[in-house]
Nucleic acid binder design. Sequence first.
DNA 1: TGCCAGGCCGAAA
DNA 2: TTTCGGCATGGC
Length: 276
Amino acid sequence: MSTAIWLRLPCPDGFSPEESLFCGQCFRFTQEEDGTISGAAGNHYIALTHRGDSLLLEHCPEEDLPFWENYFDFSTDYNALKTLFSRDETMALACAFAPGIRILRQEPWEALCSFILSQSNNIRRISGIIDRLCRQFGAPIPGAPEGICSFPSPEILALLSVEDLAPLRAGFRAKYVLDAARKVVSGQVNLEFAATAPLPQAREHLMQIYGVGVKVADCALLYGLHRLDAFPIDTWIRKALARYYPQGFPEEFLPWQGAAQQFLFHYIRLAKRADA
DNA sequence: TGCCAGGCCGAAA
DNA sequence: TTTCGGCATGGC
């Protein structure tokens, strides 16, 4: 019988791993009945339990702690953001619904690829496709349970064909992933440029990829490059904007409208408020 | 069983 | 410029 080695990672007041990991911004985590959450980001694996003001990390190498601190964006003051957002009535409800949400700092390629696969798809199936993608073309993560693999690099995917991706059952999205991988590897698409360019140029740059439109580009910018000014508008957000913000989303949220969108998305989608 | 999903592309009007 | 069908697949 093995003895678990636990590391304690203090977390900011109000942070919720459940709300952050299961609000539709990443697709590689699951939760057991006992509350344990496990999953992978990039080539890092984690199994965690939330206890008070800390995360208890099982079998986590100490050198991984900075990665997860950064991943959960512990350095950003979300209480200040929620205070700002809550000046608006609907956003106040959204922030109260899941106050523990944080915008995860995902790896740029992984986020881009994941949201290419997300289009016209549901979260459950997206998770399945990404799981098969990692198992097929990623590498085993040291210390992780068998079958938990890293997210495959664009260099690996760029060499594959649509036929190679058939086992993923990604449908028409497979050719989009390959085009993205090839353009990233060739340098035609530069994710570092997208991180710093003005939002319109960053969008346009990513939209060179076949199968990447405004929505997917903004998801890559928000979730992969932590550009909180990017504003992914999907079906739910479109409904919410039409219903609650016919005059447009509050301008004062502009620099952080992507973060605001995440609270709203989760609230509208789960509370079904758009049709209420 | 049928609807629809964190969209996008390309043709037609 | 706007509208709309098609695209693959499988949760619910």
